[in-house]
């Protein structure tokens, strides 16, 4: 039982220095809501904890031209209430608002949510739909930016090196013609791990009354959040009406079925996907609220 050291960098240089000293047994603490419990399990104590919560400079939401930049140590509470997020990435704000409890949202950060790589992570579903890229820094001080999909490899698995920390998420800011939504099915109204989550982004061409730039991401089905590309294509140029809502729901069901064939949870999730899809659709407020056809 070694004694774990905790270092709390407060500037980027300190972080790089800390990362340079990191070993595979080093863990990064980005809020602690998952990590603190796991490191207390005897036998799994890290040699060093790099406490990222001191990096105030990475807690931000900024609009940089057409790009929205979210610092990795931004808490869910900050995201939930941030006006830029509301305007340019509503689905991320909605997802943040549904993470855990107030207490968890106050401590938990978007960087930690991604690095923890839970298949149920609400933040991952939203960022996937937003087409987010992830910027990291490593112990050599090298910054890299790569798509979120390259980071998330599966349950608790990422491509992050042991000396690599997420510093920022960036993605094209949604414009005034865009609408976005996030829906989640848990086992309670509030404070529940997602059993299924979806983020939906569309651009609505008001003149034509049709959708384009459709982006659908599903979470808590399979190892990591993913884009349902075929579904996205099939909805492009369709009118924002009830029939499209139905196609969207059917597409979500198909995506769930393809993602977890034969899985124990499939019988439930394939049906629940219909409800999830309609919840997300109705949140776009592009058509009068609609219900599954069978209802």
């Amino acid at each position: 039982m070694g004694v774990t050291d905790v270092v709390t960098p407060v500037r980027l240089e300190d972080l790089v220095a800390a990362l340079a000293a990191a070993t595979p047994q080093t863990r990064l603490l980005a809020g602690g809501t998952d990590l603190v419990r796991s490191i207390r399990t005897p036998g799994s104590e890290p040699d060093t904890i790099i406490d990222l919560t001191g990096l105030a400079e990475f807690a931000y939401v900024r609009l940089d031209g057409g790009t929205l930049r979210v610092g990795a140590t931004t808490t869910f509470t900050a995201l939930q209430w941030d006006p830029l997020v509301r305007e340019h990435a509503l689905c991320l704000g909605l997802a943040a608002a549904q993470v855990g409890s107030v207490q968890i949202r106050n401590a938990g950060t978007i960087g930690g949510n991604i690095a923890n790589a839970s298949p149920c992570a609400d933040g991952a579903t939203a960022l996937t739909a937003l087409g987010a890229e992830v910027t990291t820094i490593d112990g050599a001080g090298t910054a890299r930016t790569r798509p979120l999909g390259e980071i998330l490899l599966g349950p608790s698995r990422t491509s992050l090196a042991h000396d690599e920390a997420i510093t920022e998420f960036s993605f094209p800011a949604l414009g005034p013609e865009h609408r976005s939504a996030f829906a989640k099915i848990g086992s309670r109204t509030a404070v529940s791990v997602a059993r299924l989550s979806a983020a939906l982004v569309v651009r609505f061409d008001a003149a034509a009354g049709t959708l384009d730039d459709v982006r659908v991401s599903l979470g808590a089905v399979g190892g990591a959040a993913f884009r349902a590309s075929r579904l996205e294509e099939s909805l492009t140029r369709l009118p924002a009406d009830e029939a499209t809502a139905q196609l969207f729901a059917e597409g979500c069901v198909a995506a769930v079925q393809e993602s977890i064939p034969g899985r124990y949870s499939l019988p439930y999730k394939q049906h629940a996907a219909v409800g999830l899809a309609y919840d997300a659709w109705n949140m776009l407020a592009l058509s009068p609220p609609c219900e599954p056809a069978w209802a």
Binding site: I185, A272, G275, L276, A295
Partner: peptide
């Protein structure tokens, strides 16, 4: 009962 999700309020 939400017949789509099976959740009961």
């Amino acid at each position: 009962v939400d017949c789509a999700t099976g959740l009961v309020a």
